[in-house]
C-alpha cells in the first residue's frame, strides 16, 4: 500500500520513540539469551572454551551434584507450591467474609511478608532456626526434642519450605482475594437458599470460578520456585551437604564460586527454561476447559 508522507513521518517518529527501549531490551535481554544458548554448547574452564556439541548435556546426566540440585528443586516445588496455593486460597476465602472483623488488618499482616527484603527475612529465619533460636526454644518448651534445624538435611529442607511459604502466601492470596471480590454475592446467596453445603460451595463453586487465577498463580509460583536462590543462599548456603542446593544456586556456584565453567552453567540454566516450559504446558493442560 502506498504510504503518504505523513504516514512515513509518523512511522519514523514512532520508531524513534521505541528505539531506546528496544535497544536496551536487545542488549540486556535478547543478546544474553542467545549468547547463553551458544555458550551452553561450549566446554572448558574460564575463558578457555571450545565448541563441545552435546558434551554439556551428557555431563548433566553424569553429574551427581546437578542431579541432587534438580531433585531438591523438584521437592521444594512439589511440596511447597501446593501447600502455599491451598493456604492462600483458604486465607482469601476467610478474608472475603464480610462478617469478619479486622479484615484490613489481617489482609495487611498476611501480605506484608511479600514486601520485605529477601535477604532481611532470610537472615531472620536463619536466626529463628539457629541452635539457640526461637523455633528451637519453642519446641523445647513444649517438651520436644532438640532439633538441629540447619544441620540436618530433612529439617533444613523444612526450614526453606517454611520460609518461602511465609514470604509468598500473602502475595498469592491477594490475587485470589481480588478475584473473589469480583464474584457476584448473589451466587453464594442462591447456593445458600438451594441448600448447598459450605464445603461444596468452596470446592464446587469458588475453586472452579477461580480456576484461571489459580492457574496463573501456580505457574508464577512454579517459575519462582525453579529459580529459588536468595533463601537457600542466605539461610543454608545449600547445605548441609547439598541437601538444600537448588538449580539456581548451582548455576551461581558453577559461575562464581568454582573455577568458572560458563558453558556448563548456561546448560543448567537451559534446564530451568525447559522445566518451566514443560510444567507450564502440563498445568495448562490439566486446567483446560473440559466441555
Amino acid at each position: 500500500m502506498a504510504q503518504t508522507r505523513l504516514g512515513r513521518n509518523e512511522n519514523a517518529a514512532g520508531w524513534a520513540f521505541v528505539m531506546p527501549a528496544l535497544a536496551l531490551i536487545g542488549l540486556f535481554m535478547i543478546y544474553p539469551i542467545l549468547w547463553s544458548l551458544w555458550m551452553s554448547f561450549q566446554t572448558g574452564r574460564g575463558m578457555n572454551t571450545t565448541f563441545g556439541g552435546f558434551g554439556n548435556i551428557q555431563r548433566l546426566f553424569a553429574d551427581p551434584i546437578f542431579l541432587t540440585a534438580l531433585g531438591n528443586t523438584l521437592i521444594f516445588l512439589a511440596i511447597q507450591v501446593p501447600i502455599m496455593i491451598m493456604l492462600a486460597l483458604v486465607f482469601a476465602v476467610m478474608l472475603n467474609n464480610p462478617r469478619l472483623k479486622g479484615r484490613g488488618l489481617f489482609r495487611t499482616a498476611i501480605f506484608l511478608p511479600a514486601v520485605t527484603s529477601l535477604v532481611a527475612y532470610s537472615i531472620l529465619f536463619k536466626s529463628i532456626f539457629s541452635n539457640e533460636g526461637l523455633a528451637t526454644q519453642v519446641v523445647a518448651f513444649f517438651g520436644g526434642p532438640q532439633i538441629a534445624w540447619l544441620a540436618e538435611p530433612f529439617w533444613a529442607k523444612v526450614v526453606i519450605i517454611l520460609a518461602i511459604t511465609w514470604r509468598w502466601t500473602g502475595y498469592n492470596m491477594i490475587f485470589y482475594l481480588a478475584a473473589l471480590q469480583n464474584i457476584d454475592r448473589s451466587i453464594y446467596e442462591a447456593a445458600r437458599i438451594d441448600g448447598v453445603p459450605a464445603r461444596a460451595q468452596f470446592f464446587r463453586i469458588t475453586i472452579p470460578m477461580l480456576k484461571p487465577v489459580i492457574l496463573f498463580t501456580t505457574i508464577i509460583s512454579t517459575i519462582g520456585t525453579l529459580q529459588l536462590f536468595d533463601e537457600v543462599q542466605n539461610i543454608t548456603q545449600g547445605g548441609p551437604s547439598n541437601a538444600t542446593l537448588t538449580l539456581s544456586q548451582y548455576i551461581y556456584n558453577l559461575t562464581f564460586r568454582f573455577m568458572p565453567s560458563f558453558g556448563y552453567a548456561a546448560t543448567v540454566s537451559y534446564v530451568i527454561v525447559v522445566l518451566v516450559a514443560v510444567l507450564s504446558t502440563v498445568q495448562f493442560w490439566v486446567a483446560r476447559d473440559r466441555r
Partner: peptide, 16 residues
C-alpha cells in the same frame, strides 16, 4: 434459608 421451602430468582440471575 435452605429449610424454608422457598426458591429465589435474583436480578443478576446468580447462575454458576
Amino acid at each position: 434459608a435452605s429449610r424454608r421451602g422457598i426458591a429465589m430468582v435474583f436480578q443478576t440471575y446468580a447462575l454458576y
